[in-house]
Design a protein around this nucleic acid. Structure first.
Lengths: 108, 108
DNA sequence: GGGCTATTTGGCGCAATAACCAAATAGTCT
DNA sequence: AGACTATTTGGTTATTGCGCCAAATAGCCC
């Protein structure tokens, strides 16, 4: 694997890594319905606000969300709606796996 | 976030986490062109075979790949080709980000 | 300015991940 | 059975990720 290929896959991995956390996926899902401020997301997620803020900064530096300060709050919005396809694909996969395991159990 | 929602997003995160590594993404990409045995992948990735094997087991337990022992080798194949859409989406995102940063630089 | 609220940042402890080496396992061939 | 090859597993160490607390920052309002 040459350096250029390596770099390309590292870049992709960085985005996937940013998404690879339940709370972050949940927030992305919420933001797909419209922008939210940190306090709203904090209430929904149920973790400490500092934790939520850090998760958001991970998503932001990966380019998944964008933030905008308005008044006293910071509003986050989904910057790349195409990530929603990720989630759909993941669900599909999960369902298929579940069905497979069920089949396995039935056969035996 | 209730327990059921939590579980749903955890399941999704598990798949994304399995994909979120440059070597694993590379292997998935290779497998999209057809099955490979561990030794072939090892040669392509350039890490220790034990490392490659562990990466493959991560992908396998996430349901992304399937393995089959034939003769002396173990062949891996892509079990869910839909993950390729993930990669396309990721590339799209990366390009967009790169373009954006370029624009930012030009404006200033 | 001073108090208040929303958010981010820094630090700490703990769990998870990753890479390598060495050893174990399993199949092939003579 | 014994030698050989492909793969997996276990152990060790270094790095990274996560969650909470406390402190810092920034904007609003009186």
């Amino acid at each position: 694997m040459d350096a250029k290929t390596q770099a390309r896959f590292e870049a992709r991995a960085r985005i996937l890594k940013a998404l690879a956390h339940p709370s972050r996926l949940f927030m992305v899902d919420q933001l797909s319905h419209g922008e939210c401020c940190v306090c709203e997301l904090t209430a929904m997620v149920g973790s400490d606000m500092s934790t939520v803020s850090k998760h958001l900064s991970v998503l932001k530096s990966a380019g998944v969300v964008a933030d905008e300060k308005r008044g006293m709050q910071v509003y986050y919005r989904l910057k790349m709606p195409c990530v929603l396809r990720f989630l759909d694909c993941a669900s599909e996969v999960i369902e298929r796996c579940a069905r497979e395991q069920l089949d396995m159990a039935n056969i035996r």
